[in-house]
Amino acid sequence: MTEPRPDPVPPPGAVRTAAPLFAVDGVEVRFGGLVALDDVSLAVAPGSVHGVIGPNGAGKTTLFNVCCGFVRPDAGTLSWHGEPVRDLRPHKLAGTGIARTLQGVGLFRGLTVTENVMIGADRHRRAGFGSALLALRRSDRDERALRDRALAALDELGAAHYADRLPGSLPYPVQKRVALARALVAEPEMLLLDEPASGLGEDEMAELGALIRTLTARMAVVLVEHHMDLVMSVCDRITVLDFGKVVADGPPDEVRDDPAVVDAYLGEEAVQ
């Protein structure tokens, strides 16, 4: 990651620094007769932005669902920090250090913006049921700590002055920022973003791109996105899916000119 080496065989030390934070290996998912993912592998380096692109129905969201434990792969393995991940469940994800935003916004409509983000920070809680029931000082202190975290995350995304509003009363781009704040406040090591730019204007998209780049100091980002400009400008590496298969994998410049990728997207345009 530090400097490009002309040597095609890197010394062992370099291999360790480039060891992936998260890796998917030979994953296969079938829905009945449909093969949604077929022998898909990818490796996310720490502190990198990894794009996953492909035409509609290519299997991108399914891949995210496998990474989150919503869908069990029929074959293949996942690994986290080099260790194989067994029995992955969605509710264990946050504790592991992985956060995900949903396609759409997926905010809690009956909770204020702050409360929404406080739910994202829930893994940092200390107080339990007993202290909540009796409203002990411990519970008050814990609530204040969670609120401070939430407000800091909102502040970072420029949404702090919407803190007491309900999400339904806010413009869509603001809702997306709140959803992002909810994911960031968990302080994940890896952030999965499913179409974060959908419904955003040009300026907001540029802002989002800049934000994603600043996040790499703290976490790896996996990005599913249809907006090619954004993907090409922020990603360090891109995996291209088509009909559930990896058709290309590499840095943006390489992927852009790959004939297989051009084919996949030309096919899509021909269908449309």
Partner: peptide, 11 residues
Amino acid sequence: DDEVAAELAGI
């Protein structure tokens, strides 16, 4: 309000 989002938050 939202099971999937709650579960992803570790609940």
